[in-house]
Amino acid sequence: MSGHVAVGVDGSPESGAAADWAAQEALLREVPLRIVHAYEWPGAATVPVVSPDAQCRWADELLADAAEVLRREHASLEISTRPLPGRPAAALASEAAEADLLVLGSRGLSGVMGFLLGSVGMETISMTERPVVLVRLPGQAAAPDRAAPELCRDVVVGVDINQFCDPLFDFGFAHAARHGHRLLALYGWSIPPVVRDAAALLAAKRQMGQDVARRLTEILAPWRQRFPSVEVVERSPVGAPAQLLVRAAANAELVVVGRRVRRAFLGARIGPVAHALIHHCATPVAVVAHR
């Protein structure tokens, strides 16, 4: 790794929010920030709206303007820019491979432009094994849960006790330590459908719940020792993981979710939980690849 944070900009307000988030993260990590813009020249079979030279000039101006804004706000931050001609998803994935972290703007299920509504953002995530953080506009964030008694902004980590989660914990605990936030480790599980009787269901839930909680505590033990300054909360309720994570995100600073590195028959996939968080979570989402 070269030790920098990369952020993709495209002129949208969402990418501006991503640039702000990335600048703050680069400052806390004490690494440079690289602002990139990925674009593809029109092919021979398309009708070009602008010439390649004009597109290059527009990319350079976009990057210069974004850098100027961030330099005014963060004078001590080392900032560079890089245009990325070529297929956008591949170009962004290649850039991510050189960085510690890639940050992109997100519109979730609203709007018709931006990195994450077309195939570019999703494809970028599936093509890189580096962490990618997706940032919404501040006004798109959900209102905090008024029923929640605490004002603490958690770093929520979606855990699967049956999978290898070390990369998620590494990212989540380090982020919580840098920002001084609490870490909420959340694992959602379900009762086997063969249990039909209400009394048997309650007994199974109690017995299985104790075992699930014990396994979660065991998995987290070495990370508590490695990051003693981070307050850790463990929760293992019955429920769908994606729904539980979206609900927990209402009072979170960041949600960290995993993506299995594997190739499907029709190409790379990011998994149903990560997919749901990307589209429905108003809080910034970190997608961390793991094997």
Rank of each mutant, 00 (worst) to 15 (best):
S15C: 06
D211S: 12
R260C: 01
G111R: 08
G11V: 06
G271W: 01
D166A: 15
A22D: 03
V257P: 04
G239P: 08
T46E: 15
A204V: 03
A75E: 10
V238G: 05
R136L: 02
P131E: 10
V246R: 02
R215Y: 03
A91T: 01
A45T: 15
H175S: 14
G172Y: 00
R196S: 13
R224Q: 13
S12A: 05
E61F: 08
R235S: 14
L266P: 01
V212R: 07
E40M: 12
A286D: 01
V255R: 05
W41G: 07
A282I: 01
V194D: 12
T128Q: 07
L183Y: 09
E129T: 15
T283G: 01
H280A: 06
H280S: 11
V47R: 13
G239E: 03
A268V: 09
A240M: 10
G271P: 05
L254K: 03
P83E: 01
E98V: 11
L277K: 07
R29L: 15
S236T: 08
A174N: 10
S119A: 11
M127P: 00
A26P: 07
Y187E: 12
R196T: 15
P237A: 02
A54Q: 15
G188K: 04
L109Y: 09
P237V: 00
A242F: 02
G105I: 08
A242Q: 02
P13A: 02
P85I: 10
H181T: 06
G16E: 15
D154A: 15
G8N: 09
R34P: 03
S80L: 01
T283S: 02
Q163S: 13
V47T: 14
A141I: 05
V256T: 04
P228Y: 02
P88Y: 05
V7H: 10
E231L: 14
V287H: 00
F227E: 06
D160Y: 09
S15Q: 03
D211C: 07
I161K: 09
G239L: 04
V47M: 10
G11D: 03
V133A: 03
D53S: 14
Q225H: 09
P167N: 12
D10I: 05
R224K: 06
G3L: 11
E25K: 06
A141Y: 10
L116H: 05
W223K: 07
V256I: 10
E25F: 03
R178M: 04
H279T: 01
R291G: 10
A17V: 00
I125M: 12
D154F: 14
Q163P: 00
A249Y: 04
A93C: 04
R178C: 02
E129F: 11
A19P: 02
G11K: 01
F115R: 03
L109T: 14
A221N: 05
W41R: 06
G108Q: 08
G209V: 02
R182D: 11
L84R: 04
R263D: 06
R72N: 12
A249K: 04
E14Q: 05
A66H: 01
E253G: 12
L116D: 00
A142H: 13
P167H: 11
A6T: 15
A66P: 01
P167G: 07
S51M: 12
V7L: 11
E25M: 05
R72A: 13
D160R: 05
E218I: 08
A248T: 00
P193F: 09
A204F: 14
P272A: 06
P42L: 07
A23S: 04
L216V: 13
S229P: 02
L201R: 14
V273I: 05
